Amino acid sequence: MPVHTQAGEPRRPPFDAEAARRLREALGMTPAHVAYGIAAAYGMPLSPATVTAWEAGERAPSEAELTALAGALWCAPGELLGAPGTLHEYRLALGLAAADLARRIGMDPAGYARLEAGGRWRGTERQAAALAEALALPLPALIRFTGRDALLTELLTSAATTRWQAYVRPVGKVVPLPKAQLREVLQDLHADYQATMAATLHWGGGERAEESGRAGRAFLDGILTEFWARAGTAHP
């Protein structure tokens, strides 16, 4: 059953104000030069004060303005962005139009637009692989954007709380990592969860049992992030 991906996209891209200033200065341009270049090449009348406000972090350009700014500074849009966190931002960083990306991965443009707006992933494994390749997605981001975070979290929770050996193969079907690596990570998660529970349990009864329960829940709440960290893949 399909599950929800991220809940919508930010209205403005994650602009790197310092990078914009640095690139402008490297070209020997003033904010007035940049504003003029954007207006002349893209038909977007801007004041130098707007460019200055962008560079000061007081305002952020829209997607169209960011594309125009990148053109004026002779750089890729991705050079003006912070770390992408959404599907929209990964696409924007590469300067790809949504319709072009949809065609590249073999997806209906309207369906892809719904996905970026926080809809459900309804694509195939082939389309997921094409999406990862087109956007150079790290594995955690691909799992999140294709709606498999919840399933992976469920599997990891079961592996930590029961027999981890039984979950190597199911986790491997979701996360294409080497079997030996998955075995090591799942075994470590299981051992650490059990140690967390044991550290707060003794024959003293109720209060310690409640403390153990809280510690166990906290461990499981962060198990997905912990899994990516131990697998050597940063969580977005």
Rank of each mutant, 00 (worst) to 15 (best):
Q6G: 09
E9N: 13
P10S: 02
P10A: 02
P10H: 01
R11S: 14
P14I: 01
D16W: 05
D16V: 10
A17L: 05
A17G: 09
A20W: 03
R21T: 13
R22F: 00
L23A: 04
E25C: 07
A26V: 06
A26R: 14
M29V: 14
M29H: 15
P31Q: 05
H33F: 06
V34D: 04
Y36E: 08
I38M: 05
I38T: 00
G43E: 02
P48L: 01
P48G: 01
A49K: 14
V51C: 05
T52G: 12
A53L: 04
W54V: 05
A56L: 15
R59S: 14
A60F: 01
P61F: 00
S62F: 12
E63W: 06
E63P: 13
A64M: 09
L66T: 05
T67N: 05
A68L: 08
A68C: 12
A76S: 15
P77D: 01
L80C: 12
L81V: 04
T86S: 12
L87T: 08
Y90F: 15
Y90L: 09
A93D: 02
A97R: 13
A102S: 12
R103W: 11
I105R: 04
I105M: 05
I105P: 06
R114Q: 12
R114P: 04
L115F: 08
G118N: 08
T124H: 05
Q127R: 05
Q127H: 00
A129Q: 15
A130L: 09
L131F: 05
A132S: 11
A132L: 10
A134R: 13
A136K: 11
L137K: 02
P138L: 02
L139E: 07
F145H: 15
L151R: 15
T153K: 13
L155W: 13
T157H: 12
A159V: 04
A160W: 09
T161Q: 09
T162C: 10
W164H: 15
W164V: 07
Q165V: 09
Q165F: 02
Y167Q: 10
Y167A: 03
V174T: 14
V174N: 06
V174H: 11
V175I: 11
A180R: 14
Q181Y: 06
L182T: 10
Q187S: 08
A191K: 04
D192S: 01
Y193K: 00
Y193N: 00
M197L: 13
L201R: 10
W203V: 12
G204W: 00
R208G: 13
G213N: 04
G213L: 05
G216E: 02
F219P: 01
G222P: 02
I223L: 03
L224K: 03
F227T: 07
W228A: 02
G232I: 06
H235T: 02
P236Y: 05
